[in-house]
Design a binder for these strands. Structure first.
Length: 427
RNA sequence: GGAGAAGUACCCAAGAGGUCGAAGGGGCUCCCCUGCUAAGGGAGUAGGCUUGUAAAAGGGCGCGAGGGUUCAAAUCCCUCCUUCUCCGCCA
């Protein structure tokens, strides 16, 4: 959420940032609402002040045995005026909220305008692997090795669901453990949040109201109902809602492992077979809460942590800085770490690292107390996957396959697989 | 799922329609005393949001949240949330 003050202070800057997303917003109605609100508040506050003063006199008058009915009559009329004005105030405030809430975050100055085509690769690691034999796709590799049971998954839950079986499940779990271990070593706090969340979490994280159709609602979609988390970012962003964090506790560094549940309605189903896009996938999510001054460094840290994980697996990837239209509405900047999937001949996102600046903090009223001024200020929130397995797993199988269809286990995963160096029974 | 009780400031807690920005205690801060420590004495310790302004002064809101009754609500009524206790259910 952006604020009226941000717009007032530098309207040009705000407009520039929004234009980069290919949008245009006329703020005039907002300013009108704002001055109307002030006007109403000034009026009603004077009346309330008068009511308070008069009411304070009553006990003394009563003690003297004087008649107060005249005052009561007058105050009753005042009271009616007050409640009518109060009503107008809350209506205007609601309109202001409805105006501001859907406005996307302001992208950083250095984020270029445009869509996907304007994304810039900022660095890459490793090379596209070459094979001396005809490599198999991860789908075939899973089938011959019995890592994944797609058919049974579909039987249980329909399209977009799969079952990790045997060494496939072991590999999946080893990946998750490898991530968790790295984050613990880096001093991040381990969080296991609930998977069923209330509406407000979705609002704070910025997914609602726009994307409230893309999550699974456990009952009917409503402000009181619960939905299954689409990413652990949603609960992590909401953990500190309505609180003031002492500055010395910042930055807060944490991570969570959860499955992610997504409807993925209208996705590119044919291209994305296998586990590229499913309704449930595993992800470890990193999250940081920082001061505004600390958030750039935190962002770099998150990106490099995600890169380190992929590097550790020895997988070829590139890091891309997203152009404005590709940055999600909640975020000011996003870097994607994309991994090479040989059978598809494309890079797929395994981590998305973003700085929300104070956008989520405003939505969730998350503040910190500045140690010098003692003032309360909004925190910055940042998140990055670290990592999602559903793209990593296929890339790993394909990049680590042997000619006989077995899979070499990357060294970093071996400790989590009881020392195994090769998995699968092969062709 | 059912029944009951409770939610007041950093913590505990009084408060039962008007002078309650809310008693008291603990904690914390400062000072005094005691050669250290323990103990004692004194003073201070409500914020958050908002309005207003050049800055201020001043004003509004505030006792879990939201409504309502009333001239007036921490206090009465309703709804919701949370916590605790008891009962039920047991993956």
């Amino acid at each position: 959420m952006i604020s009226i003050d941000m717009i007032k202070n530098d309207q040009e800057k705000v407009e520039r940032a929004i234009e980069k997303r290919g949008m245009k917003i006329d703020f005039k109605p907002l300013f009108e609402l704002d001055s109307k609100r002030r006007e109403l508040l000034n009026k009603v506050d004077v009346l309330k002040s008068k009511r308070n003063q008069e009411s304070a006199k009553v006990p003394a008058l009563k003690k003297e045995g004087k008649d107060c009915s005249e005052i009561f009559k007058e105050m009753k009329m005042l009271g009616e005026e007050i409640s009518s004005l109060d009503e107008q105030v809350s209506k205007v405030e609601e309109e202001i909220f409805n105006f501001l809430a859907p406005i996307p975050n302001l992208v950083d100055e250095d984020v270029v305008p445009g869509g996907k085509e304007a994304n810039q690769e900022i660095r890459s690691f490793g090379e596209k692997p070459t094979f001396s034999f005809e490599p198999l796709s991860h789908i075939d590799l899973c089938k011959i090795n019995g890592f994944i049971d797609y058919q049974a998954g579909a039987k249980l839950s329909g399209n977009g669901h799969w079952i990790y079986t045997g060494e496939g499940a072991e590999l999946e779990w080893a990946l998750i453990n490898y991530f968790i271990n790295q984050h613990l070593e880096d001093g991040y706090k381990f969080i296991l949040p609930p998977h069923m969340l209330g509406y407000k979490c979705g609002f704070i994280a910025g997914q609602f109201p726009k994307f409230d159709d893309e999550v699974y609602w456990l009952d009917e979609k409503s402000k009181t109902g619960k939905f299954l988390l689409p990413t652990a970012e949603t609960p992590l962003a909401s953990m500190y809602q309505d609180s003031i964090i002492p500055e010395q506790e910042l930055p807060i560094k944490m991570f969570a492992y959860t499955p992610c549940y997504r409807r993925e309605a209208g996705s590119y189903r044919t291209e994305e077979r296998g586990m590229i896009r499913g309704h449930q996938f595993n992800k470890v999510e990193m999250f940081q809460i920082t001061t505004p001054e600390g958030s750039d460094a935190a962002f770099e840290e998150l990106v490099s942590k995600a890169e380190k994980l992929v590097k550790g697996l020895g997988l070829h990837f590139r890091t891309t800085k997203l152009a404005a239209e590709d940055v999600s509405a909640t975020m000011a900047r996003t870097y994607d770490i994309e991994i090479w999937i040989p059978s598809m001949g494309i890079y797929k996102e395994v981590s998305s690292a973003s700085n929300a600046r104070d956008y989520q903090a405003r939505r969730g009223n998350i503040k910190y107390r500045d140690s010098k001024t003692q003032k309360t200020l909004f925190v910055n929130t940042l998140n990055a996957s670290g990592l999602a397995t559903s793209r990593l797993f296929p890339a790993l199988l394909e990049q680590y396959q042997n000619e006989d269809g077995t899979i070499r286990v990357p060294e970093v995963l071996q400790p989590f697989m009881r020392g195994k160096t090769v998995i699968g029974k092969g062709k």
